[in-house]
Design a protein around this nucleic acid. Structure first.
Lengths: 216, 216
DNA sequence: GTCTATAAATGGATAGAC
DNA sequence: GTCTATCCATTTATAGAC
């Protein structure tokens, strides 16, 4: 059901993959910059260097183009996750504090990117109209981050490095502290991204607090 | 400069305050439900029971109406703040844990309201176009909450109830833990509000973790 | 498959009567 | 001050030529 969103066609003359990609790129920038209503199909076609008719031959309507953009971004904005398994031979030998700090710095480096905040704003604004996309984003982004962190904490708990009987809740707490109020200020456009030095200091402070509460 | 947003006029025939209020109420609902672009002036006038000309006589344009809505909401959605002074005679004699729990429950009760989330989404989406409104919202809402909490913690620190040399940072941590990932899920429309029982349990868990890290 | 030109609908804002 | 009726710009989506 629905229209094709890929460059391949069912049987007719194949559509130009370059134009397909150009349309997606232009739409991505305009959606992120001006929201769903702020981006006009006219402008998207112009920025992509194609005509509106071509645009509509690739995507059935504005909704389909929007969904394709979101799905593409979700697939590309993945955080490099730490090792999920707990094989003693492959386990990271560094102390838990170091591993948590590294994880937190990587997370906040991603969350500091302005386009990530634009993306979050866009999805939140469209969440009522596109609940499926919001769920997809949450599962692929925030949820997978929390799950990976909970896995790390569960491992550490089993090894006795930390007392953490509820790794999921603990991961929730730690991620939220890492984000901090700065995340909201940046989401509201009141502040720019933190510097790597600021990130490292903030992450270390939060991690220390967290470990102090969970030490034996 | 600009147009009048209040029901009082400079000297001519006074405008109907009821219509003014009806316009604001209708605009509030439509802006919160569909965003800035999603709410049409036509529909606002229809829902308010006035004509478009009357609408434009009360508010110069859509932007002015939007600003008036936001300002009204910011003024009304205040959290009852705890006592700022630290006079020993008026100080709350209950243990810090109890006071923090009460504060957290009040905060999460407010943050659980769906319209608060709609409001946050709306402001985040419009933050680039209306940076002044975003700043106003942040100062009157999240910032004042954190400041009040930091004041409580600073008091407790001076009395030796807790070790908290940086009350502002500690308030940041605690507020963010209280909010938790549930706040994001609700902002994305993936989950409804927590029950008072869930709120109480979550707040207590976070407060306990916080105090465990800050105890002597 | 892609383009130019256009149809059909909607939204913001205003003119003029009462 | 308020209403009815309307102008003008913009937007989504399509028809027909190459």
């Amino acid at each position: 059901m629905g229209s094709r969103t890929g460059p391949e066609t069912a049987g007719g003359r194949p559509k130009d993959p370059d134009k397909h990609a150009a349309i997606l790129a232009a739409a991505r920038d305009l959606f992120l910059g001006g929201g769903f209503e702020g981006a006009s199909m006219d402008r998207i076609a112009r920025d992509a260097g194609v005509s509106k008719a071509t645009l509509y031959s690739h995507f059935a309507d504005k909704e389909a183009l929007f969904s394709a953009c979101i799905l593409g971004e979700v697939a590309r904005s993945q955080l490099p996750m730490p090792q999920p398994p707990s094989d003693p031979r492959t386990a990271d030998p560094r102390p838990l504090a170091k591993r948590l700090d590294e994880f937190g710095r990587a997370l906040l480096g991603l969350l500091s990117r302005p386009d990530i905040h634009q993306f979050g704003r866009l999805l939140a604004a469209q969440s009522l109209r596109h609940p499926r996309l919001a769920q997809l984003f949450y599962d692929a982004g925030p949820k997978s981050v929390c799950d990976a962190l909970a896995g790390m904490l569960d491992d550490a708990h089993r090894r006795g490095e930390v007392i953490c009987p509820d790794p999921a809740a603990a991961a929730d707490h730690l991620v939220c502290m890492w984000k901090g109020m700065h995340h909201m200020r940046q989401e509201l456009g009141l502040e720019g991204p933190r510097s790597p030095r600021q990130i490292a200091a903030h992450v270390a402070r939060c991690t220390e607090l967290f470990l102090r509460a969970h030490r034996s």
